[in-house]
Amino acid sequence: MKTTVLIAHEYGQPEVLNLESHSLPTLASGMARIQVKAAGINPIDARRMTGEFKHAQLPQTFGTEFAGVIVELADANTTWKIGDEVLGSGGSFTHATVIDVPLENLIRKPQNIEWNIAGSLAGAAQTAMTILDEMGPAQSLLVHGGSGGVGSILIQLAIEKGMNVVATASEKNQQHLQALGATPVVYGEGLIQRLHSIHPEKFDASIDMSGNEDATQASLATVKSGGFMGSIAGRKLSSSQIRPVWVKRNINNLQHVVDGVADGRFDWSVSREYPFENAQEAYTDVLTGHTKGKSVLVFQ
């Protein structure tokens, strides 16, 4: 079986991305072969493309989450069958027409969740749950850059736990934050003063999605001594007090979010959809930032 894979043989802007046809090897034991229907794009994908974040040797492939249909199974299996609709984290990559995925990464796609939503869930959902797991108990949370995919579900999960959430975003995304249940704040010059005005008491915790200096200084100024301060930006920060948070895959955490999206408890926004053949355009837009929810590649 053949697959068409998004691949880059050098670092650079989206023009380095190519769609290449490759033959798939014999399916390994413990794996499922998936016809991809949708796959989310995360900022880390674009940053790997440019070389800002060097995660693998060249040439490199992209994508960490997907939704699709099982077309082949390596082993006799009582849990899964060919034709099952699934979603989850990928094996090596997900921005491709056909991918091989460990069975342990799969959960069933609820019938009432559209493909574009299903394909964008796994990465952001498990990242948000990892943040909460590492943060521990908290009554108040400051989210820097809360309008993106991770921030949007994190806000809702934190509120589900009873936290008071304040989140920053650009002016155009303030209503989005408010609709999610957070107190919205415009980031930029004067951020610390605005935070003090809105939330005079120190926060128990903060999480930074952007990795910029304004967010670093705001966390240092507004989070209580000994409080949790984390970042998922993957960038070197000016303060060692802010700890990096790396996603831990956990199928139970993913199932919790998927169930919440399916039954309407959690809102999940896909702001941009792109045909797979327009991947260069999609990555160009992701590089500009200021997203609301997720961007997704969709496949015929």
Rank of each mutant, 00 (worst) to 15 (best):
A169T: 07
G188D: 12
A182L: 03
Q111G: 09
L121R: 00
I131V: 15
Q139M: 12
A122W: 01
T130H: 02
V186H: 10
A169D: 09
I131G: 02
E114R: 13
Q175C: 04
L177N: 04
E104T: 14
P110R: 00
A124S: 14
P102A: 11
T183C: 09
G181M: 11
V143G: 08
P110L: 07
P102E: 11
V98D: 06
G181V: 09
A124L: 02
V165D: 03
N164F: 13
P110N: 06
G181T: 10
I155E: 03
W115C: 00
L87P: 06
W115M: 01
K172Y: 11
A179K: 15
M163N: 00
H144V: 12
S92Q: 15
G91L: 09
K161Q: 15
G151W: 01
G181S: 07
E171Y: 12
K109M: 06
T97R: 01
L157V: 01
A167T: 06
L132S: 00
V165F: 10
S152T: 10
S89D: 05
T127D: 08
S89G: 14
K172G: 01
A122F: 04
I153M: 08
Q174W: 10
G145Y: 01
I155W: 04
M135V: 01
S147R: 00
S140C: 09
E189Q: 14
I107R: 07
G145T: 02
S92C: 07
M129K: 15
S152Q: 12
S120R: 03
A125E: 05
M129E: 15
P137I: 13
A128G: 13
E104G: 09
E114N: 13
R108G: 11
Q111E: 15
S170F: 10
A118E: 02
G149M: 08
M163T: 02
D133L: 11
Q139R: 15
G149D: 05
G149R: 02
N105A: 09
V101F: 06
S92H: 13
S89V: 08
K109A: 06
D133M: 14
G90F: 02
L106I: 06
A138Y: 11
V186M: 14
